[in-house]
């Protein structure tokens, strides 16, 4: 069974604590799963997720996930030049 290690930051962390999830959470993924489908399935409002890290790199929300990936959801409103440097803009 394929799984990813899931984190979320800032205001999205509240979703984890409200649901009693561990941090990070181990989440099962299905064939063809992407960060976009994952957030939909988990009921995480996509408009609240500005960027997605997969294995420490900012990736598009439709990038295919693999077993063992480290995934993190970044909320809207993170400051700093890294919005550009890490690709929050370029990977929209």
């Amino acid at each position: 069974m394929a799984r990813v290690e899931l984190r979320a930051f800032g205001s999205l962390m509240n979703i984890f604590s409200a649901r009693g999830w561990t941090f990070p959470a181990e989440v099962e993924i299905f064939p063809g799963e992407t960060p976009g489908t994952l957030m939909e399935r988990l009921g995480i409002p996509p408009e609240e997720v500005e960027a997605v890290f997969v294995n420490g790199r900012v990736e598009r929300k439709d990038c295919p996930l693999q077993d063992g990936d480290r995934v993190a959801f970044v909320p809207a409103g993170i400051p700093s030049v890294h919005r550009v440097m890490l690709g929050f803009y370029g990977k929209r």
Binding site: G10, E50, F53, G56, P75, A76, P79
Partner: peptide, 26 residues
């Protein structure tokens, strides 16, 4: 109207970057 100046910074300050930069491996 912008999420950085109306949400991210007012809620958690600049240290909201700690987890993010850690996640980026930088």
């Amino acid at each position: 109207e912008h999420p950085v100046t109306s949400k991210g910074l007012p809620n958690y300050g600049t240290n909201v970057l700690m987890n993010i930069i850690n996640e980026a491996g930088a």
